[in-house]
Amino acid sequence: MTTRQPTAFESIPAIDIAPLFGSDTAAQQTTAQELGRAARDVGFFYVVNHGISETTQQALFDQTKRFFDLPLRRKMDYYIGKSNNHRGYVPAGEEAPDPTKADAKEAFDLSYELPGNHPEVVAGTPMMGANVWPDLDGFADDVYAYYQAVFGVGQALMRGFETALGLDPDALLSQATQPPSQLRLIHYPFDPNVTDAQGIGAHTDYECFTLLRPTAPGLEVMNGAGEWVDVPYREDALVVNIGDMLEIWTNGAFVATSHRVRKVKEERYSFPLFFAADYHTKVAPLPALLAEHEKPKYGPLAAGDHLWAQTIQTFNYLKKRLANGEIQLPEGARGAGTLGQHARHKDDA
């Protein structure tokens, strides 16, 4: 497969994915090809007609606002540093994808729910297990309903990527059955005095791809020329971007595209679902995607270990546990920010 770098695009495309949920195979093929072009040329795109109801989205918004409106001492009852599987409340300053700048946001993190007797939980696999739920009426039901809905959209997109790449059905999706796919509820507080402050620093996402539902503008994406391009807010769309794992699986045909959030003069919420591979999946360039005599550009990557290593290097409470010898980086862990378009431009600088 010929590797193509993202172009010097000035905007991102919108793709109607309704056919992915229907039975018209010709329409599904057309949609899949649109997804493939966007993943190769841009790495970022909108999806519309994704099927998540306005009721489900509004319930998520309402419950999120209820939680973040609580006093800090109440929110800290659910502090992520109290968990043993990286779930819960993330106060401002707790994480820093760019270690030189503190992120001006707070968050609440949850993931794929597994019972305590599940083998992965019993084995102590990092990031696996039950969620931490605030004691707010309906919060768990409403938030997890959105999780299940957006996870379903992710499964449909993965099937579309399989088709676009000419892979057999389930070649990728069979590797994402019970993954540590995190949903983040993110709050950017209103601050009228800040004109150009960072919300989330420049980074690529560690997983296969991300499905984002924002509530306001502020997102920027890096194009193939290393320029930052604004991603206008669309109420009717999810924003999708390619992550590290799909970059590796496709041997660089799909590139994990760097993005960042700028501070805007309005309160903003953001809801990214990071669609991951199963923890023990070995991610490496797929032989079916390599041209004759083409060599893999990436060594194999352990999906869960990669995600865990990047998380350890990003969150302050985990950095402290690492320094204290309470946890260790997985063997062969990559440094933070070593994949994707942003890393390539740093290497060229």
Rank of each mutant, 00 (worst) to 15 (best):
R260H: 11
F61M: 15
Y298Q: 07
N85P: 07
I17S: 01
A123R: 08
R344H: 11
G299K: 11
A225L: 11
P272W: 02
G93I: 08
P115H: 05
G224V: 03
S53E: 14
T125Q: 12
V47Y: 00
N251W: 02
E54H: 12
P91W: 03
T215D: 06
E292F: 09
V255C: 10
E113G: 14
A102I: 14
G243E: 00
P180T: 08
P214I: 06
G81P: 09
D103F: 01
L110C: 15
V221S: 05
Y188V: 04
D62L: 08
F274Y: 05
K320C: 13
K346I: 13
Y317E: 15
D69H: 14
K82A: 11
Q57R: 07
P287C: 09
V42C: 02
A197I: 15
T3H: 10
A38F: 04
K295I: 10
F67A: 01
L35D: 00
G81F: 13
S270F: 00
Y147Q: 02
A171N: 07
D196S: 12
T64P: 06
Y279H: 10
T56G: 08
A303I: 06
S83H: 10
V231A: 05
E326I: 05
P214V: 07
I15D: 00
A277I: 05
L173R: 02
A27D: 12
L35P: 00
S270M: 02
F271E: 00
R321F: 07
S270W: 00
R321Q: 14
E227Y: 05
F139S: 03
H345W: 13
A284D: 09
A303Q: 03
F67Y: 12
Q310M: 14
C208E: 00
G22W: 02
G325P: 14
P169A: 08
Q29F: 05
L211P: 01
R344K: 09
H187V: 04
E95I: 14
T2I: 10
A96Y: 07
A18S: 10
A202H: 06
F275V: 07
F161P: 00
A14W: 12
F21I: 07
G226I: 15
A303V: 04
L289V: 04
A284M: 10
F271T: 01
T3K: 11
L172Y: 04
V143T: 13
V122C: 11
Y46E: 04
H118P: 05
A288Y: 05
A291I: 15
A145T: 14
T210V: 13
I15Y: 01
D205S: 03
E120H: 09
K105H: 06
